[in-house]
Design a protein around this nucleic acid. Structure first.
Lengths: 147, 147, 147, 147
DNA sequence: GTGGTCTAGACCACA
DNA sequence: GTGGTCTAGACCACC
């Protein structure tokens, strides 16, 4: 008996393709362990009717997740989340390029909307916590007040 | 005599539309003050031939920057960077929603590629510095002043 | 089965760009509820061939309506009229500035053509009625109820 | 000795051509008698330097006003406002078509920005008053309070 | 010189 | 079927 999976929110009016919206949200859920390795994703028909989108669109999203190495399709059984540790990580150099680019875009968008770097850092740290990605230098732990 | 403007790198094979690639890079350059308020962007024809893309594609990008409130076009003169301070910022609520989403995506992508939260925080801070967005960094300043 | 949509009249010889003519007429139709919220606009290709203009020109018009917050496009499905009530109104101050300017221009043009204020007021009131924008008209209701 | 003429405000960033902005504002000033028949407009060089625009642009605007029959150029002497009564008015039918169109656009734009018909009527009446275009049914005059 | 408009047509992505 | 992107080129308007 499959547990209730975390919901997805789709905006058909957004410029972003629906299949990509699904991919992005599932990527986040997998990274934050809301979807755990070995777990089965909702069936294509099921998710399609839940989100009120064409099943073909769901197929497109699951294919993309497969290409990214996050899920695997077992014929006739369904689509399953893969174990992250099993995948070999990208080179640090490649990671850095991608992450710098994403960070630059986030900072640019935040700046455009009037946020400063501190505000964005706070959001960054909170989001790490919310996604259960621990930061080693826990700057929110109490420091000896008596010092 | 116009100064040399920072270069743009376009990948026509990437799935991302060329005009959007231009927008993203110019957004970053404006946020980081590589392009300063009042400065003129390269002319449409000029940038088109530099990037080897159709001038119409550049027009599309400049229009989008105009809708984002980052540039204005003065007829017959060119397209100019607007002063960010003049724009009224988005509500903190709206900012937060957008920035949380972008951050979640970045963290998810980083996790997928094998980075941990500390590595991403380091990249975040370096990128802030590189884009000249100062952090007050109170959490790294010594706390033992009273010690 | 889509109903017959109200016709548009385009004058390619007018100095006004065709896409802007389309925008203006659709704005009026949306304001007067000739096009109701949720309704689909004619498809780009369809309207293009109807008006004998290039589909790109129609795209330009629909994009502008999107930026004005009057329509949204759903990928692969079409362009749909948005619910006006859902949009938050502009500040009264901003409204006033724009409307005063438009009114001044209308009065100036009418004066130039030999109309007086009463004639223009009559046209104003009739047009309100034709567009189904009800006036409370307290100033024309009989005031002698207590007499 | 020419009196100080009412100022013009030009926005080079607005999409509207500068020469048309000049035309529109002068049309309003002539209709409201801020510029009286027989009066001389500022010289082309003068207005060009005042508004910081190319003198050619001013020429374009004055030409248009000439075509509209609002001013006349006397070689070597300047550009003069014509007497409105001297022009024969357009047919009522033509007037009506133009004014209805302008009114529809104003109502559509106001509706988009969240104004209702009463608000727009109030602005209409105030603007008539500000432009010295008297309305015969003076709905703002006091009615017998004792009734 | 600058940007803006319109056309014609190919190709792709989305649902 | 829908809309989105890119190209190529002509022509105009603006300053």
């Amino acid at each position: 008996m499959p547990r209730d999976l975390p919901p997805l929110s789709i905006d058909p009016c957004s410029g972003e393709p629906i299949w990509r919206q699904i991919v992005e949200q599932l990527k986040v859920q997998i990274a934050s362990r809301e979807l755990t390795p070995g777990e089965r994703l909702p069936s294509i028909r099921n998710l399609g009717s839940t989100l009120k989108v064409n099943p073909r669109t769901v197929v497109r999203a699951y294919e993309e997740l497969g290409h990214l190495g996050l899920v695997v399709t077992r014929q006739g059984q369904g689509v399953f989340v893969l174990n992250g540790e099993a995948r070999e990580p990208a080179s640090q150099h490649a990671r850095r390029a991608v992450l710098e680019d994403l960070t630059r875009r986030m900072l640019a968008e935040g700046t455009r909307m009037g946020a400063d770097a501190d505000e964005m850092l706070a959001i960054f740290e909170e989001t790490c916590q919310a996604m259960q990605l621990p930061l080693s230098k826990s700057e929110t732990t109490p420091r000896n007040a008596s010092c």
